[in-house]
Amino acid sequence: MSHWPTVVELTRARLESSILAARIATRADGALAGFAGLARERNQGRAVRYLEYEAYEPLALRQMASLADACRRRWPEVHGVGLQHRLGRVELGEASVLVAVAAEHRAPALAACAFLIDALKRGAAIWKKEFFAAGGADWLANDAAAEPPDRPSMPLPSARPPIVPL
């Protein structure tokens, strides 16, 4: 358990990166790295109207907390960590996920931020449904194999890799 601030949340409310940043950064930090995943208007050539997310909430929250721990083990210089994900309907342009990492210097903050969003997308028990402008809807599946090869690798020693080990 880190004595630095940790925010791990699933919420139906709009996400604000500045609010998350203020909750995890302290005066000990010289760097704050952030990532926001936004609901965009096109995916795979189709016009999107809005997104809906659902989660296995207790499992996803445990996984997100475990990712924050894993990230601090890998980059002990990391201070505050924030992970927030939306549930329910998300309109175009809104953030569906926020990651924020604070540290004394930028290198671990940036690396940890990339690690967290990649690992969250790969394993957290969260599902997205896209509703199309032309009508209809589809559930998506994140393709772990499509991740860029130079991403920080995080072996998940699990019998079923897409679940973050607990």
């Binding site: 296995y56 499992l59 994900h85 394993g123 028990a125 969260i126 599902w127 599946a141 679940i163």
Partner: peptide, 10 residues
């Protein structure tokens, strides 16, 4: 839990 392939994030 029976979990289909996940799709969190944007």
């Amino acid at each position: 839990g029976l979990l289909p392939p996940v799709s969190g994030g944007a």
